[in-house]
């Protein structure tokens, strides 16, 4: 048992918090150092920092990758902070808070996937945290990694692999026969709809975050032009300061960055849960299990 009042405990606490904030500050510093000012409507993709030569195609290390690594590291230290000094009788605020989160996600999984998938909660909670924090990075003026198709496509491929794994649990023959249902004529359409799932996963998340980025850039440019028109008569350098750009974009970013980002994280996790649980045919799996056991019994009986 650790004493939560001791000096050592508090020092470790502060160190963990600093470690969780430091990556974000590092990325902000990198952004400031490599920033190229632009006027008007400036929309660009992720900046490519450097590339590593690879046999098939060069590996690009981009802004979105660095930002998502920063998010991963900062979430890791946040988790360490929240689980620091856990005890059986919860008496710290952070333990109560994190227990609430874990209970919520467990309840969500129990409701949507059933008790069989109870081991999914770490994956789902990691997915929500990574997605939400990545989208919220735009609050710091950074490039949100989720507005890069490569990042969301990676997550979608992961989900697709999970779905296919749970479909293959009932045997490869059943998996292939699933394409020919209800009639074999529909096989091509079933095949397309199978691959449409990861594509729509990736594009939904990417499109939502990207549309927020595009609209905030347009609002920023419009306010700059408007303040130049309205307040351009002010003397000296005052005319160059875009007064309307102060504060007003923040109101819009409450919807486009905070609400939309968190909602997309929730929806991504929710659809992952639904797709994975509907991919798994529990009845067929049980039937096959019983059959296998019977076969084993028959074989052992024959040997005897």
């Amino acid at each position: 048992m650790t004493d939560i009042k001791s000096k050592k405990f508090k020092i470790i606490d502060i160190l963990l918090l600093i470690c969780s904030i430091l990556p974000i500050f590092g990325v902000i510093l990198l952004k400031i150092l490599t920033y190229e000012p632009a006027s008007g409507v400036a929309l660009r993709g992720a900046r490519v920092f450097f590339q590593i030569p690879m046999p098939i195609q060069d590996l690009y290390i981009t802004e979105s990758q660095l930002n998502s690594w920063a998010v991963v590291i900062s979430i890791l230290f946040l988790c360490l902070y929240f689980t620091h000094g856990l005890s059986k009788d919860a008496h710290t605020k952070r333990q109560l808070a994190i227990e609430w989160v874990v209970e919520k996600v467990d309840g969500m999984i129990d409701e949507n996937m059933g008790a069989r998938f109870a081991s999914f909660s770490p994956f789902i909670i990691a997915m929500i945290a990574l997605s939400a924090f990545s989208s919220l990075l735009s609050l710091f003026g950074l490039f949100p990694p989720t507005s890069d198709l490569n990042i969301t496509a990676g997550w979608a491929i992961l989900v697709f692999a999970l779905i296919t794994y749970y479909k293959l649990k009932c045997g490869p023959v059943n998996y292939l026969a699933g394409f020919a249902s209800p009639t074999p004529i529909l096989a091509p359409i079933n095949f397309i709809s199978e691959f449409a799932t990861p594509i729509s996963f990736a594009f939904r998340h990417y499109g939502n975050v990207l549309s927020g980025v595009v609209i905030s850039v347009l609002i920023g440019a419009a306010l700059q032009g408007l303040s130049g028109m309205l307040l351009g008569w002010l003397p000296g350098f005052l005319a160059d300061i875009p007064f309307l750009q102060i504060g007003i974009p923040a109101v819009f970013s409450i919807y486009f960055d905070v609400f939309s980002g968190c909602l997309q994280a929730y929806i991504f996790a929710m659809l992952t849960m639904m797709n994975v649980s509907s991919a798994f045919d529990a009845e067929e799996f049980e039937r096959r299990k019983i059959k296998k056991e019977q076969n084993k019994l028959n074989k052992s009986n024959k040997k005897v």
């Binding site: 729509s200 594009f203 939904r204 990417y206 499109g207 939502n208 990207l210 549309s211 909602l263 997309q264 929730y266 929806i267 929710m270 659809l271």
Partner: peptide, 17 residues
Amino acid sequence: MIIGCAVAETTGLYALI
């Protein structure tokens, strides 16, 4: 409703992309 809205939104997002 929120999940249904997200699924319905997908076609619009395809158009946006």
